[in-house]
Simulated scan of single mutants.
Amino acid sequence: MMTNLFSSFDPSTSFNLSLNWMSTFLGILFIPSMFWLIPSRMNFLWINISFTLHKEFKVLLGSKIKGSTLIFISLFSIILFNNFLGLFPYIFTSTSHLVLTLALALPLWMSFMIYGWINNTTHMLAHLVPQGTPPILMPFMVCIETISNIIRPGTLAVRLAANMIAGHLLMTLLGNTGPMLTLIMINLLIMTQLLLLILESAVAIIQSYVFAILSTLYSSEVN
């Protein structure tokens, strides 16, 4: 029995073990087969997805640093694996915790900022004042742009964690009402849960794409 509604997101809830975080690395078990088995339809699908992402990220990043799209494709892959693994029963959703999402967003943002301010200082200063800003509003715009720049890793991390928590929490709430319902209502509940599961699958893909594409946009601003 859960003592608290949010205890389902606690990594120490099940069996009192800290092995729940191992779900973060379960996706790695499925990767090596691509290198030694005959390519299957799943392999071809994943290659097409990676190639499509590479073309999209290349448009945003340009051709200044070759191979830079691989970083963001890898970021998309690890978030996508963890989001989907969290949809299986009794597997801990690591992307619903700020510990993991901040660990992904903060180092990326810090590296972009350090690189930008060291190598392109004039360009970074120009970004603080949007083009066409009246002189009287320039100090306020600098403050607003600085604050919006500082909270970027927080918004990246919170957006991913909040979206993962929201759907799982709704499914948990509806699932706990099952024993108290009639047979007709249970059938309706199962249909609702299936629709929510489809929605969560879409959210898992969309959120990993949003995280990767926003990281790409942030990196393109410092060049």
Score class of each variant (00 low, 15 high):
residue 79 I to V: 15
residue 80 L to C: 09
residue 82 N to T: 12
residue 82 N to G: 05
residue 83 N to K: 02
residue 87 L to D: 06
residue 88 F to I: 13
residue 89 P to G: 10
residue 90 Y to W: 09
residue 91 I to V: 15
residue 92 F to C: 04
residue 94 S to Q: 04
residue 99 V to W: 11
residue 100 L to Q: 07
residue 100 L to M: 10
residue 104 L to C: 01
residue 106 L to Y: 14
residue 107 P to K: 06
residue 107 P to N: 06
residue 108 L to A: 03
residue 108 L to E: 00
residue 108 L to W: 01
residue 112 F to P: 10
residue 115 Y to P: 04
residue 116 G to M: 03
residue 117 W to D: 10
residue 118 I to S: 14
residue 122 T to L: 07
residue 122 T to N: 10
residue 124 M to E: 13
residue 124 M to I: 13
residue 125 L to D: 07
residue 125 L to A: 09
residue 125 L to E: 13
residue 125 L to R: 10
residue 126 A to W: 00
residue 126 A to F: 09
residue 129 V to C: 12
residue 132 G to K: 04
residue 132 G to W: 06
residue 136 I to M: 12
residue 136 I to G: 02
residue 137 L to W: 04
residue 138 M to A: 06
residue 142 V to W: 02
residue 148 S to P: 00
residue 148 S to M: 15
residue 149 N to E: 08
residue 151 I to K: 08
residue 151 I to H: 07
residue 153 P to I: 01
residue 158 V to T: 12
residue 159 R to K: 13
residue 160 L to W: 01
residue 160 L to E: 02
residue 163 N to T: 07
residue 165 I to H: 02
residue 166 A to C: 09
residue 168 H to W: 02
residue 168 H to Q: 15
residue 172 T to K: 15
residue 173 L to S: 09
residue 173 L to M: 14
residue 174 L to T: 01
residue 175 G to M: 04
residue 177 T to Y: 08
residue 178 G to D: 14
residue 179 P to Y: 04
residue 180 M to R: 11
residue 181 L to G: 07
residue 181 L to D: 09
residue 182 T to Y: 03
residue 183 L to A: 08
residue 184 I to P: 00
residue 186 I to N: 04
residue 188 L to V: 07
residue 190 I to D: 11
residue 192 T to P: 00
residue 192 T to F: 08
residue 194 L to W: 10
residue 200 E to M: 12
residue 202 A to Y: 15
residue 203 V to T: 07
residue 206 I to M: 05
residue 208 S to K: 01
residue 213 I to M: 14
residue 213 I to Y: 11
